[in-house]
Amino acid sequence: MPPGPDQLLQMYAGMLRVRLVEERVRELFANGRIPGFLHTSVGQEAVAVGVCAALRPDDYVLSTHRGHGHLVAKGGALRGLMAELYGKANGVCHGKGGTMHLADASVGYLGANGVLAAGCVLAPGVGLSIKHRKSGQVVVTFFGDGAANRGPFHEGVNLAALWTLPVVFVCENNRWASSTAHALSTAGGSIAARAAGYGIPGESLDGNDVLAVWEATARAVERARRGDGPSLIEAHTIRWVGHFEGDGQAYRGKAEVEEGRRTDPIARLARGLEERGLLDAAHAALIREGVVAEIEDAVAHAEASPLPAPHDALTDLFAYYPWRD
């Protein structure tokens, strides 16, 4: 069933939330409020939101180094996220994970990841567990086009296909493996075409079209829930920002970012909603106001939160560990 008006507006607000979170986080990083190596997903919002809109709240997501958007789209609380990005004690991971290594198990977000394609081999195990528990859940693992050249991508797809596991592999192809162009890193060109080698459906689509992403994911999720196994989706999108904050991007010209702005997934959905009479300027402003208020609440929360006590570096290693190490 295609998404109804409410769901479309939720997708619109969802993409806006991801966009504004990322832009605010970039600003906070530039102002020295957030430490670390920051990778944001500005421009790629339609993939995160289109995929997660097709999921149940109890479904699982495995994410990447560029993972804030996936968490926000999966329903992760902004306060916990923001405090974690600040490295605060009440961050969702108590300040131990930060931007690239955070998880929020309460919404099935099983982890960003500092290692590319790492989630591709974790996903079949989540699928095994789902199958064993007969819970009808699915697991989505996001990865980039660069990650599709690592062994775990192939091992993970092979195992999930071999054992007919409820996994959806979602490649966010933003054309760049860090600073190396897709054409210079990826033989054969298409990542979706690799699915054929494993006997599973593979689909290449416009990742800046949130409805196309939603539709393909809904199909893959339905197949997985039916017990028919995994699918591979390659969503073509454009990263408006550098690989990391501070990336000079000497490897690409301005034209690509301009192309990204022209195909802005948020503006695109807004136009569609306006044409259908579901959104007007006043409504859009109201939605934006609400999202900004949520984000500012999270930022204020993070600012006001305490830093961890230094010796808390020694906690959370094991469930119990009464011994001296």
Partner: peptide, 19 residues
């Protein structure tokens, strides 16, 4: 299969979700 990353990685995926 002879696929150590998938064997060990999938074990983690299963372990963190209830097996």
């Amino acid at each position: 299969p002879i696929s150590e990353a998938a064997i060990v990685g999938s074990a983690m995926g299963a372990a963190v979700t209830g097996l």
